[in-house]
Design a protein around this nucleic acid. Sequence first.
DNA 1: TTTATCCATTGAAATATTTCTATCTTTTTG
DNA 2: CAAAAAGATAGAAATATTTCAATGGATAAA
Lengths: 94, 94
Amino acid sequence: MAQMDTKTAEKISKALSDPTRLKILSEIKKKHDWLYCVDLYDNINLAQPSICHHLKQLTETSIILPEKEGRNIKYTMNNEVIDDFIGFLQGLKK
Amino acid sequence: MAQMDTKTAEKISKALSDPTRLKILSEIKKKHDWLYCVDLYDNINLAQPSICHHLKQLTETSIILPEKEGRNIKYTMNNEVIDDFIGFLQGLKK
DNA sequence: TTTATCCATTGAAATATTTCTATCTTTTTG
DNA sequence: CAAAAAGATAGAAATATTTCAATGGATAAA
């Protein structure tokens, strides 16, 4: 497993520190690991650019991965990054 | 292990999303799991109230635990909270 | 008991984040 | 090709966070 540096852990923590972004992740899980952007508009009461902004923070940290499909984008969880982040957290303990 | 709710996970993420606070945690680890507030003034180039502010966010989320010893305060890592947070992160994956 | 030390609080300035409306780009459909 | 649909971007307003200087409260030392 990759050793995650502090700066990356900080960015991942920041990406996870918002209710909308955690909601997006739980929606992805609920839909069995992937969804289209448009799936979120029904469940999240924010304007489209706001959701887009949150998705950007999740993709920039690679917590989720975007995959272009025509004019849609399919987002999937990136379990590797979560595992690396967990490794970092384990390292904080004695 | 306790099931962590989303709101708590959000607060813990926020507490971890700052370089100074991650530095404090790494200092605690370096000193073998506990240190006094004053130990941080040497290693962190911020004014005392700023460090105090960061410590507050870490204690409010119980990531570290304060223990009064005369006029000093001894801070220790709270591994339980880290483990619960890790449990939450595992739950984000499929 | 006076002084020093350790930490917390207050209030203000600087910076960052969140959210929106309006607009743009890309891709599909008629 | 023209219109529609899915996302992205720009810029601005509202809010939150980070930082500091000044000061306060509690405990220890002289």
